[in-house]
């Protein structure tokens, strides 16, 4: 009887130890899972910010838009409006073939602060199709970056270069 009781005690003790062990293990797993969730989210945000910067950088130096002079030397932070108007059509025409490879899912807008005009040069939104067939946006965040530029328009200047102040807004969809 004494041995049986001792055995029962030992068994209960072992079960208790195992229980505590598994509780601790569960805590560990939950903690690790939560940490990973936060880490993944932070990493995603970091990547999104980097993509926004890269896209802005590419945009500013795009040969389709940038002003040049003499031997095609670039003028810094300047957009040639005559080229820009044509570029919009070219971006749209070759969006899936080519320009998606440069800008990915993004929205690029150029705003003329003098004439209060704006032009959406590129817009490729992440989308999904619902069960009822409607297409809706499938993104959580639009990370925007801004850059001040000058807009050169020689036609507005009647043959002479006229420079307006403006900005580029580059938004990337997450």
């Amino acid at each position: 009887m004494t041995i049986n009781k001792k055995g029962q005690m030992q068994m209960t003790e072992t079960i208790a130890v195992l229980f505590i062990f598994f509780v601790l293990l569960l805590f560990g797993i939950i903690f690790y899972y939560k940490y990973q969730q936060v880490a993944v989210k932070e990493k995603q945000e970091e990547l999104l910010a980097a993509r926004a910067m890269d896209t802005t950088l590419k945009m500013l130096f795009l040969p389709e838009l940038m002003c040049t002079k003499r031997e095609a030397e670039p003028e810094d932070n300047c957009i040639d409006v005559l080229k820009m108007r044509q570029a919009k059509a070219t971006f749209r025409k070759y969006m899936s073939d080519y320009y998606f490879g440069i800008f990915s899912y993004a929205r690029i807008r150029v705003v003329d602060l003098v004439d209060k005009q704006e032009l959406v040069l590129y817009d490729k939104e992440k989308t999904k199709v619902l069960d009822n067939g409607t297409m809706v946006g499938d993104w959580e965040k639009l990370e925007k970056t801004y850059f001040v530029v000058t807009l050169r328009d020689e036609i507005k200047g009647q043959g002479e270069a006229r420079y307006d102040l403006g900005y580029i807004e580059v938004g990337v969809y997450s």
Partner: peptide
């Protein structure tokens, strides 16, 4: 060359705008 094709289209468009601009009697 693939990029050249697209940029050529952009410049062709610009040339068309220049043509319309200079076709007026003012110049």
């Amino acid at each position: 060359f693939k990029r050249l094709k697209y940029i050529n289209e952009v410049y062709s468009g610009k040339a068309e705008e220049m043509k319309i601009f200079y076709s007026s009697k003012t110049f």
